[in-house]
Design a protein around this nucleic acid. Sequence first.
DNA 1: CTCCGTGCAAACTTTTTGCAACGGG
DNA 2: CCCGTTGCAAAAAGTTTGCACGGAG
Lengths: 150, 150
Amino acid sequence: MFYAGGMNNDVHAIVDEQLRRARQRYTGGRRQLVQLLIDAGRPVTIPELQEIGARQSQSSLYRNLATLEQCGAVRRLASTDDVARYELTEELSEHHHHLLCSSCGRLEDVVLPPRIERALAEAAEEARRQTDFDVDSHRFELVGTCATCN
Amino acid sequence: MFYAGGMNNDVHAIVDEQLRRARQRYTGGRRQLVQLLIDAGRPVTIPELQEIGARQSQSSLYRNLATLEQCGAVRRLASTDDVARYELTEELSEHHHHLLCSSCGRLEDVVLPPRIERALAEAAEEARRQTDFDVDSHRFELVGTCATCN
DNA sequence: CTCCGTGCAAACTTTTTGCAACGGG
DNA sequence: CCCGTTGCAAAAAGTTTGCACGGAG
């Protein structure tokens, strides 16, 4: 099965290219970070990255994630707890939205059927007309309680 | 024109009742805070509250906002910068969504027409079926660039 | 040889907390 | 009086930065 940018084998090649464009290197640490983000399948925190085996100092984690964010490979998210979470950009993953646990701040990915995505896009278009913001994307979040906090 | 809970005159009375239920007092500082949130008309940060005339110490701002959050009068939001923003809950304001400036983290309120709200509710219902999260609400955010950052 | 990337420790920002004083009911 | 509330200062939590070393090109 194919979907744009979703095949793990390709992800590293794309990130390599993205970094190259920004005149930066795809080091071992950065590669491992990208692999951990692929494996996680949801936005993860710095402590979580350390738990699942990131073998680099905390400052390198911050710096590498910032670098990957600047080159367009990673997106940084703020949740309800004040711990940043990181995920691959949609260029490297599948278009998705998030479930947010209002108790612990955990985020999970959710993929919606095309019919719903069309409705959301339509809603965004309507909303854009009502504002002087220069709107370029939208986010849809489901807020609730995760399995752990339940 | 009437809409549930939206009349400023009533807001203070409702907050008073909410605090009373939580066995806490509606002090002058808290009342001023609620009035500032009404006037702001969008989620504001602690520094912004100080700029617009909140006359209490920073620690009291944090504590009073936490108290108001616990009793259901205020909602705390995380944005892209790592500064918390506060707004009145929808019980005290109008149902709305947010515009998010990806450059500075500023949030603005936006009210969508009922037709769009129905589509969003439908999308949320569909999404809820796809997860083990106990979903109880949804958020729709328009991401873009605000007038100042433009 | 030259930089970029790294680890460590210190600095910085935002938020929380301890403590003593204040004040309304 | 009693106990919730406040201000101040210190502490805590998360993130960023300075610096010196090491390794890749």
